[in-house]
Design a protein around this nucleic acid. Sequence first.
RNA 1: GCCAGUGUGGCGGAAUUGGUAGACGCGCCAGACUCAAAAUCUGGUGGUGGCAACAUCAUGUCGGUUCAAGUCCGACCACUGGUACCA
Length: 800
Amino acid sequence: MYNHLEIEKKWQNYWDENKSFEAVNGSTKPKYYILIEFPYPSGTGLHIGHPRSYTALDSLARKRRMQGYNVLFPMGWDAFGLPAENYAIKNKIHPKEAVKENIGTFKNQLKNLGISFDWSREFATTDPEYYKWTQWQFLKFYEHGLAYKDKKAINWCVSCKVGLSNEEVERGHCERCGGEVVKKEKEQWMLKMRSYADKLIEGLDETDFIDRVKTAQINWIGKSEGAEIKFSIDGTNDNLVVFTTRPDTIYGVTFMVIAPEHPILEKLKDKITNYDEVIDYQIEASKKSEFERIEISKEKTGVKLEGINAINPITNEKIPVYISDYVMMGYGTGSIMAVPAHDGRDYEFARKFNIPIIEVIKGGNIEKEAYIGDGEMVNSDILNGITNKKEAIEKINSHLENLGIGKKTVNYRLQDWVFSRQRFWGEPIPMIYCDDCGWVPVPESDLPVLLPDVAEYEPTDNGESPLANIPEWYTVPCPKCGKSARRETDTMPNWAGSSWYWLRYMDPHNKDEFVSREALEYWGKVDWYNGGMEHATRHLLYARFWHRFLYDIGLVPTKEPFSIRTAHGMVLGEDGEKISKSKGNGINPNEIVSEYGADTLRLYEMFMGDYEIDTAWSTNGLKGCRRFLDKLWRIQEKVVDGASFSPNLEVSIHKTIKKVSDDIENMKYNTAISALMTLLNEYEKQNSITKADLRVFITLLNPIAPHITEEINELQSLGESLCESSWPVHDESKTIEDTFEMVVQVNGKVRGKVKMPTNVSNKEMEECALSIDNIKKYVEGKDIVKLIVIPNKLVNIVIK
RNA sequence: GCCAGUGUGGCGGAAUUGGUAGACGCGCCAGACUCAAAAUCUGGUGGUGGCAACAUCAUGUCGGUUCAAGUCCGACCACUGGUACCA
């Protein structure tokens, strides 16, 4: 048994005092930038899941340093956000006080884990010196026309009283509080992320993100190619433009549907004879929350617009127009051409409202259901007889284009980023509204726009930010004309500060620029970025958009911010369930560290399973890891002088160097550790081991269990401290055993095993295989059809 | 519905990418040490049959390819996460 409390503190102090992990800008060593998502410093401290990703990337950082890299492995705090604000409301203290306290707790916990962060670069997104530059970058978006204010029906969380982006809504509920989300018309600052949709898709080619992250992003952006087609309204000059991915089915259009909120209704109200009914339906639809619209209304509802008809531009037939909430204003054009024969929703609607159904693709039975498969085109004039969908679409597209009634277009699921939050604890949006000049940006020299020190942080009931209650804060002279004007009182979303933080780490104390050009050029891309899967369509998308914009305006030298992106699995409770307060299945990292030591916790979290996959916590498993470290501690009794490996350990050592080196690169820490366990078991069987044997072992283990390995290194005087040593390199020729166990199969079943010298000829293997008693038993009296020999592995005898 | 992931002993999980299924760890059983316990050490440990050698079954299910399949192909089932009247 060793005293982990003493040893771990000792080495943590050593690293601090020696600045062992500080990165140097402009060093001649090759650079390597490792990043983990900085945490939100909550009041409850570190979660047992945090050390999993932190240790993994810490191990990589420590290995890279030993491999001679100038490693940047920074840490900071994503400290704006609702929890701090809610805490402040409850306890009547300024959120910045709560944040300060929580950061202290977190930092202390991280230090106790021995994570090799470069603390000299630490900052929080709530530091005015930092958010000054977040505001500055917002002004750049504004300057380049990518930030605009618009009145839009946005997602509104009823209980937080705050607008949310699409990315923040989960199944119709607020992702933070779980409260109901409704649509609400509100003036919002928006960032034109949609115009970056293609760049965000293409940019993925320049990254090494794991596939499931790439797929999640591509799906979220939701690119869909199709056509816009103009349908005129009979007897008017008005048109309805629809978006469709299947223009080839246009001959099957028997009605149109428009969203209840569609602006054309207002325009046509004099022609619509049942306008009262329309209004009733609109009111009904607006009362439904997004959630209800999806979950409850399986049954199609709608109202026919009496008194008007649309004209199918290709057949010139009159078709009815309906409003229905199954068509959304927010996607496409808010109106569709309905092809009931070949679309499930249109089919349902047509059945309910007794609308004719025209088959245009052969292959299904339209009496029973809509047919969505491929087939021969029928009832389609110029398209008749075509069986290839692509061909049909191309033909009709060019036909429509020639007639001037349609054109190819692309639609995206991705929306512009709703960038306003009606909250106190966020970066103030640096804009001023003047009655005469309109929106005027705050001059750069006036940045940062600081948050005021006040006592009340409650949002107002009319949906305004708490800042709207503070006239002495928001009343300012217009920067343009000097007249009294009003600051924007909304603040930025929580995602703003995390959309460029990796850049600031490169040059965190710069007072003149958000980051210097030299630092940007030197550090380039983040080489390896790790974070949770839950951020694949949120933070990671915002961050890439933001960075790409900075690239486009020449502020950063790389198109994409991150090269490798990995995602860790969650640590589940001992019961296999997601850890939550209500289940009471939480594990306190502080207790684990003080009882078993940081090395044990680190080792266990790396050993518990595949890094990418969720795994249940097991205190017994943890104890097993401590047992391994105790064994390592005891192995010191066997050490004798010796500068080379023990001859009977040499092969195992070289194999282990290779295995551990490869496994760390591939995030397969669990098998790296099991290889080390196997090697230690071998060491234990020896009467003595050399200093070289021990030194290489603790060097390989050091990235994962840095404290105990440094201590043993010092106690046994094995060499300079491990954090200043080099990573061992294996000798391939020494990884080969001189014997192997030959497996002998008969018809693919293992029937015998025998030890053979490595690299014997195929012939010798065959002969030896056939001489085994148990094999003879099977082979006797049978014909040998084939003999398959895999050198240094097996012989398979195929008999008949 | 669609997209992604997962499915292997009592448990967490391995399997060199088509070549000994179950590495390593946990748990359990037996033994050693001890007055005793803990700790530690040694041995055993997928099921079934057998004293044993060995045989046989076994990687969610069913089928296929192959000398050989956890791994490849085809159908399906279950769970988890994401997403959704997306036209």
